[in-house]
């Protein structure tokens, strides 16, 4: 068990910086998810920690020890791959034994550790099966058992659930989280799936173009995005361009919208107002209170109804409402008013 510390860790491929000098500390037993679009540097970061990519700058410390220059086989880490990466010519028990033998675990101890690891992932009795005789979920459990048997200091997950179908993915997500908490191993989890990151991690690192955009617990990332990118990437958000006129936000098209006071020093430069569609109240009719607008589109999304409202200024606002009764449905072309709690509308530089 160990802490992990990345110090201005960077990777340059040719002329492009895949990862730009990032700093991060991961606490004992913590599960940290790296979330971002493809090409954001999350996988490169993980591969540097694993030792498959040599950093161009910075260092990696595990439990306070600098391991930046150690080859992958001398880092005590267990990695779980998107493709499972089981050895197809070995059965389940041989797959789990491989690492134990490579690390010279005493012969007498190996059988017991295999049994224990397979029990942990719920695959007792599958010892003699070959990978191709197992389902995707079972294969990923074997991959998990294979690394858990080694009692690594660090667990590294590289999009481990992306090859599974949707239902199984949700189930495995919880299994991995439960297991990780049970064994208490510090873990990094790379994913492009925000829901996955939200459910599995203690903290999320949102990455974009090789930089860390924001680090924080899932709720904070969602409710209090610090940058336009995070607001836009995580969940759905209305992002309205404009500027601050004193204390009031004025959109580029001229709408004056309520918002929380900025938590950065206003410079007069353009800002963005960000508000989640489910935080917006929508009222029928052109009356008092709220900003008037017109329903341009109504879409039913399962239990939600999504409205696109065009304000008098021409700005469009996305609103989501629980679909409780057809009587509440708003028709396209109907005049409405939208309003929100000022604290839910945040200004981003």
């Amino acid at each position: 068990m160990s802490t992990l510390k990345l110090q201005s860790l960077g990777k340059v491929f040719g002329n492009t910086a895949a990862v730009e000098k990032i700093d991060l500390e991961v606490g004992e037993g913590e599960m940290v998810a790296f979330l971002g679009p493809s090409g954001c540097g999350k996988t490169t970061t993980l591969r540097m920690v694993a030792g498959f990519v040599e950093p161009s700058s910075g260092s990696i410390l595990v439990g306070g020890k600098d391991i930046t220059r150690l080859p992958p086989n001398r880092r005590n880490m267990g990695m779980v791959f998107q493709s499972y990466a089981l050895f197809p010519h070995m059965n389940v028990s041989e797959n789990v034994a491989f690492g134990l033998k490579a690390r010279h675990v005493p012969k007498g101890e190996i059988a017991g550790r295999i049994t224990a690891a397979l029990e942990l992932v719920g695959l007792s009795g599958y010892e003699a099966r070959y990978p191709k005789e197992l389902s995707g979920g079972q294969q990923q459990r074997v991959a998990l058992a294979r690394v858990l048997a080694l009692r690594p200091q660090l667990l590294l997950f590289d999009e481990p659930l992306s090859n599974l179908d949707a239902k199984l993915r949700v189930q495995m997500r919880h299994e991995i989280r439960t297991l990780q908490q049970e064994v208490g191993i510090t873990s990094l989890f790379v994913t492009h799936d925000q829901e996955e990151a939200m459910t599995i991690a203690d903290r999320i690192v949102v990455m974009n173009k090789g930089r860390i955009e924001q680090v924080g617990p899932p709720a904070e990332i969602y409710d209090n995005p610090r940058t336009r990118f995070v607001a836009d990437f995580i969940g759905a958000a209305n992002l309205v361009e404009g500027r601050l006129e004193g204390d009031v936000f004025q959109s580029a098209r001229g709408a004056r919208l309520d918002c929380a006071p900025p938590d950065f020093a206003p410079t007069g430069a353009p800002v963005v107002l960000s508000i989640r569609p489910e935080k917006i109240e929508i009222l029928p009719g052109a009356g008092e209170g709220g900003t008037p607008g017109t329903v341009m589109r109504a879409t039913k999304l399962g239990g939600l109804i999504e409205y696109v409202v065009e304000l008098a200024s021409g700005d469009t606002i996305l609103v989501q409402k629980q679909d409780r009764s057809p009587a509440d449905h708003l028709r396209v072309g109907e005049p409405v008013r939208v309003s929100w709690n000022t604290n839910d509308a945040r200004l981003l530089p």
């Binding site: 694993a50 030792g51 498959f52 080859p71 992958p72 086989n73 001398r74 880092r75 880490m77 267990g78 990695m79 791959f81 998107q82 493709s83 990466a85 089981l86 050895f87 197809p88 010519h89 491989f98 690492g99 490579a102 690390r103 991959a143 294979r146 690394v147 080694l150 590294l156």
Partner: peptide
Amino acid sequence: DPAVEEAARNLGAGWWRTFFQVTLPL
């Protein structure tokens, strides 16, 4: 799958063990 070799390295196998026990058999 090149990840298979990386998995072997990650599990603690050096170059020789990876080649003779994983790459070559495959």
